[in-house]
Design a binder for these strands. Structure first.
Lengths: 177, 177
DNA sequence: AACTCCAGTGGACAATCTGCACAGTGGTTT
DNA sequence: AAACCACTGTGCAGATTGTCCACTGGAGTT
């Protein structure tokens, strides 16, 4: 899906988001248009899902993160989903295999507040049982770069054979106006 | 921590990241400097944790998401953490309460590939037991705006009393040069 | 009541960047 | 061989950014 240059672009923009296309092209030793085209394609293909700023719930005062596993009544998935999406502290919900039916990522201001959120959570009669795991500390913070690099493995791809290796940028003769 | 204007700024930049400070100030009916100052402060206070592009693992070919709960040997947390951070498919790890000791968010190319990732995962002898939950579907996609809105305390705060209500922007007389 | 503090306003400036276009090059594919 | 495609280097107009400035008005303080 992506090649080494894409990975380097993603890495650069992840580390220094405000860098801009022009400066990025300088750092990567490629033409500005190339970086621009790559970025456009990365957005078009969905690799770059969003350019939205990442908001830290902790900085908003929600210092507790927890994962709640919910057992729900058969066929009530949709209604439970609607219920959950109405709770702001529910950041993410997945259907999962295993004992539980749903796994929610939730936040709260503190442990007492977490109780309130959980009470909100289980306010739906279609939720049969819940089990909550409180995140005590973050061992590996959310990251994506290692995966990006591992996804870029093949040094060359059909739609991008050149521009991978740094230092070959001025091989073309310049266009004389 | 944040007020209504901050929330509206975050919402605007989340929905339309490429909007720019100038256009944002027009939409929000406030002075450009205000938006700029708010954004600076949101970054300084950590509310905006990052401006990095959000990369979608699925678009990189990692279509399977799973959560792995790991029981680890006493006191081996640090070494296990190091082990986990060496695996690119491990996107996030938390220490948790409850039966397991660690909760990992992992991705893989497909179900077979997930087995490989899990094998990598349990390659550490300090990991005693694992239990994996595969995410079958996303019921509520990762989101933050509802929380932002709920965090936006009453219309006024100590360091931001004005500029909340639209339509009052041109109340001040202009500075005549 | 007078005063200070602070966030917001409207404006101005230079410097920079973006979006877009173009022709030429060279590797790959048909 | 011809077509195709990605990349390069370049140019340009328009827009935006970063950073000043002086002033206004509300809130809290002395």
């Amino acid at each position: 899906m992506i090649d080494g240059l894409d990975a380097r672009i993603l890495e650069l923009f992840t580390r220094e988001p405000r860098i801009g296309v022009l400066e990025a092209s300088r750092r990567l030793q490629v033409a500005r248009g190339t970086v621009q085209a790559r970025l456009d394609r990365l957005r078009d293909t969905g690799v770059i899902a969003s350019l939205a700023p990442t908001v830290d719930p902790a900085a908003l005062g929600f210092r507790v993160t927890a994962f709640a596993s919910l057992d729900i009544r058969q066929g009530a998935r949709a209604s439970v989903a609607a219920h959950l999406s109405r709770i702001p502290e529910v950041l993410e919900v997945h259907t999962i295999t295993g004992q539980g039916d749903l796994l929610c990522r939730i936040v709260a201001r503190d442990n007492d507040d977490l109780q309130r959120v959980i009470d909100d959570l289980v306010g739906d009669d279609d939720i049969v049982r819940t089990s909550t795991l409180i995140a005590l500390s973050t061992v590996v913070a959310p990251r994506i770069l290692p995966l990006v690099e591992s996804a870029a493995t093949p040094p060359s791809r059909s739609w991008s054979t050149r521009g991978i290796t740094p230092g070959e940028s001025d091989r073309n003769s310049a266009v004389v106006p």
